[in-house]
Amino acid sequence: MKNKRYAIVLDTKKCLNCKACTVACKFENFVPVGDDTYRIWVTELPLQGKFPHLHQEYQTSQCQHCENAPCEKVCPTKATFTTPEGVVLVDYKKCILCKACMTACPYDARFVSEHHESVEKCTFCMHRVSEGREPACVETCPVRVREFGDLNDPNSKVSRLLSSRPYLQLKPEKNTRPRLFYVL
């Protein structure tokens, strides 16, 4: 039995910019109210064109769960680690709040959490996944921008999406090899 390789595939062209995912994440993961505390976010990409020929997209994002994770490398206490499934997690007890990982992360995906007294970020909702439930952001989305699943399973939605559609990844020049894929 092969290991699972978890990933999220995003079809952000469908995104309504409704912010359901960001609020769901806050409650699910005890993320405090505040502009600087968030695990996931929705960005309005710049408006293109001139009136009346306009185009705009919205981009949801979060920790990229990089296979080559800069945050993990700089962590002096090994608080940040990667699970066998490829999920990058923080052991809150080991974190000494040095914030080196926050500086190292090219995606600005980490913040200091009062609740956990630690630097934290998206966990792919592993506590839900282990119970057979989907990550909160995946589940709550009206239009299903995100799909979560196992790249090692060729029949998973994520595998099928990636084999049928072109995709890109954020900041490829950083050579981080993210587990988030944006289909075009």
Binding site: T22, V23, A136, T140, C141, P142
Partner: peptide, 24 residues
């Protein structure tokens, strides 16, 4: 702790918006 969408719900099709989540 959290309000989850009902994935089987015929009308809302398993979604819950920001307001619905913030109902907590």
């Amino acid at each position: 702790h959290k309000i989850n969408p009902n994935p089987r719900h015929v009308k809302s099709r398993g979604m819950l918006c920001a307001k619905g989540n913030a109902g907590v």
